[in-house]
């Protein structure tokens, strides 16, 4: 908006609004926002104070007023992302506000020096809520169907995307960090570990790994050779099997044996 007033977290805005009711603040915020949209001189003091009360003071009435005031703008951001997101716009609007509320604790409100930065952060929340959902969808493509879990969207680490620490399903049984450390112990050679990291953490095909690291893997066949070698080692590792349960029953009977002369 036209003015950018610096207000420290926890302090009332320079214009003393400490006795102003939420209703009056909300009305003034709406009025000034309209002026701003018409290109007339306006102040963002009232709107910023609403945010401050909502976030810093955790005032639920102020938060409801914030959501009411900015729902339309957040909806516009959501609709700009198109596709399935726009088709379920209300859900994503709520996710954006939830994310903002969760991420901006009272002690973090000081990072905003005025309304423009608050709104930019809210805009960022509208985008990252969708990005995280895309991550989840991509991660679940790697899981076999019998490992998929019900309930809230999960990250690859089994954490609920928005708030909470829900741990469910197969991923509940392992710590990814522990799994990676076990892999590091089993695969100490960096060239081999890079293939694993690129394959499973970055989701790259061998041809992409070769393209990005030609100095390590001069041909795609080199990547396949390393990858096969490492996978065979991991499937026999008790530590990896225990952590990730990655090896199905009966694998021991399916092993490979050296070919004659090979």
């Amino acid at each position: 908006m036209a003015s950018r007033l610096g207000v420290r977290a926890g302090q009332a805005s320079p214009m003393d609004l400490s006795d102003t009711s939420i209703g009056d603040l909300s009305a003034a915020c709406r009025r000034e926002s309209e002026k701003y949209r018409r290109g007339e001189p306006s102040t963002d003091t009232y709107c910023f104070e609403l945010f401050r009360r909502a976030v810093y003071s955790r005032d639920e009435a102020a938060w409801e007023a914030v959501v009411d005031q900015y729902r339309g703008i957040v909806l516009a951001w959501v609709l700009r992302q198109g596709g399935a997101v726009a088709a379920d716009a209300d859900y994503w609007v709520n996710r954006a506000f939830d994310r903002f509320w969760t991420a901006v604790r009272p002690e973090r409100f000081g990072m905003f020096d005025g309304l423009p930065r608050v709104l930019k952060y809210l805009q960022m929340c509208a985008a990252t809520a969708v990005l995280d959902e895309h991550r989840v969808q991509r991660a679940t493509q790697h899981e076999s169907l019998d490992e998929l879990t019900d309930g809230a969207p999960q990250t690859a680490r089994g954490q609920e995307v928005d708030g909470g620490d829900v741990e469910t399903g197969a991923l509940d049984r392992l710590s990814v960090a522990e799994l990676w450390q076990a892999i590091v112990r089993e695969v100490p050679e960096e060239g081999e570990r890079t293939v694993l990291y690129c394959s499973f953490a970055l989701g790259m095909k061998p041809a992409e790994i070769h393209e990005r690291r030609p100095h390590l893997y001069p041909t795609v066949a080199d990547v396949y050779r390393v990858k096969r070698n490492v996978l065979d080692r991991l499937r026999r590792s008790p530590a990896i099997r225990r952590l990730a349960q990655v090896v199905p029953d009966g694998v021991e009977r399916q092993g490979v044996v050296p070919e004659k002369g090979g």
């Binding site: 994310r99 991420a103 952060y121 960022m124 929340c125 985008a127 990252t128 809520a129 990005l131 995280d132 991550r135 991509r138 991660a139 679940t140 790697h142 899981e143 076999s144 490992e147 690859a156 680490r157 197969a170 991923l171 392992l174 990814v176 960090a177 799994l179 990676w180 694993l196 394959s199 499973f200 953490a201 970055l202 989701g203 996978l231 991991l234 499937r235 990730a244 349960q245 990655v246 090896v247």
Partner: peptide, 21 residues
């Protein structure tokens, strides 16, 4: 094996989207 490793490790050390934001 690849499905489970990928399911567990995919982007395991990526900063959350919020951190990128």
């Amino acid at each position: 094996l690849q499905g489970r490793l990928g399911g567990a490790l995919y982007r395991f050390d990526c900063p959350p989207a919020q951190a990128l934001g």
